[in-house]
């Protein structure tokens, strides 16, 4: 059997003296879709940011398709290229147009010819249903549109894994579904995904496993059917009763 897409082994992380992640173990198979939820400050964002090493852990291992980070800067960048990331605050490049946001890394990192990069970017903008906005600047778009551009930008690099860090938390309620629709479509295409979110409808619909975190630990891990109907821990039940 091939190596799992993502493997976290005994991950520990501290901010100063405060421990934010405690012995995290997680294996994600290729094509698996994981939803991570939990109260704020539970370490869920920190965990997924450790996966592409935007945050550095102090103990334990992060393996991406069996490869570990930290050998050299060039190799870390290469591993990172296989991991797409979508942020809560979109983090689009405001000085570039929507199209340039998408083609940028293709041209500068993958050295793809401009015309080819633009064709690829347009096909992905069509996939997230905003090809007509290609020549606008990000700040001229609505939040939902910006987040879809961010998804297209990440997909341009043909990642093997996609990380979503609360992708709908900064959106107006009316725009959440347009982003979730794109994510559902992506999940159905077989992409390996780890999604930090409180959108439980999304979890029910596409997740293979739901993970509940509290105080830096993984408390509970179960398929959605089980997770929502018969949670084992009282902490999970309390959390679910508050958000559902």
């Amino acid at each position: 059997m091939s190596a799992p897409a993502i493997e976290l082994i005994g991950l520990n992380k501290w901010y100063g003296a405060f421990q934010v992640l405690k012995d995290i173990d997680l294996r994600v198979r290729e094509g698996e879709r994981i939803v991570v939820c939990g109260p704020s400050g539970s370490g869920k964002s920190t965990m997924i940011r450790c996966i592409n090493q935007l945050e550095h852990h102090q103990q334990g291992d992060v393996l991406i398709h069996g490869q570990a980070f930290g050998e050299s800067a060039a190799r870390d960048e290469a591993i990172r290229r296989d991991i797409g990331m979508v942020f809560q605050q979109f983090n689009l490049f405001p000085h570039l147009t929507v199209l340039e946001n998408c083609t940028f890394a293709l041209i500068w990192v993958k050295q793809m010819p401009k015309a080819e990069a633009e064709a690829l970017a347009m096909s992905l903008l069509e996939r997230v249903r905003i090809p007509e906005q290609a020549h606008k600047f990000p700040l001229q778009l609505s939040g939902g549109q910006q987040q879809r551009v961010a998804i297209a930008r990440a997909l341009c690099m043909a990642p093997k894994v996609m990380l979503f860090d609360e992708p709908t938390s900064a959106l107006d309620p009316e725009m959440i579904s347009e982003v979730l629709d794109v994510m559902i479509e992506l999940a159905e295409s077989g992409m390996t995904m780890i999604v930090v979110t409180h959108e439980m409808s999304f979890a029910r619909r596409v997740a293979d496993r739901v993970i509940f975190m509290d105080q830096g630990e993984i408390v509970e891990e179960a398929p959605p059917a089980e997770f929502f109907t018969t949670p084992k821990y009282d902490r999970t039940r309390l959390f679910l009763s508050q958000i559902l």
Binding site: A78, R80, R81, M85, F87, Q89, L92, F93, V109, A154
Partner: peptide, 30 residues
Amino acid sequence: IPKGQYEAAAAVGLGFWQSTSLIILPQALR
């Protein structure tokens, strides 16, 4: 320049000099 810009640049695989000269500096200088 918000930290998110550095993170987004790193997440698409840009190295330090690329993200500094192409993403961060154009915005900072403006």
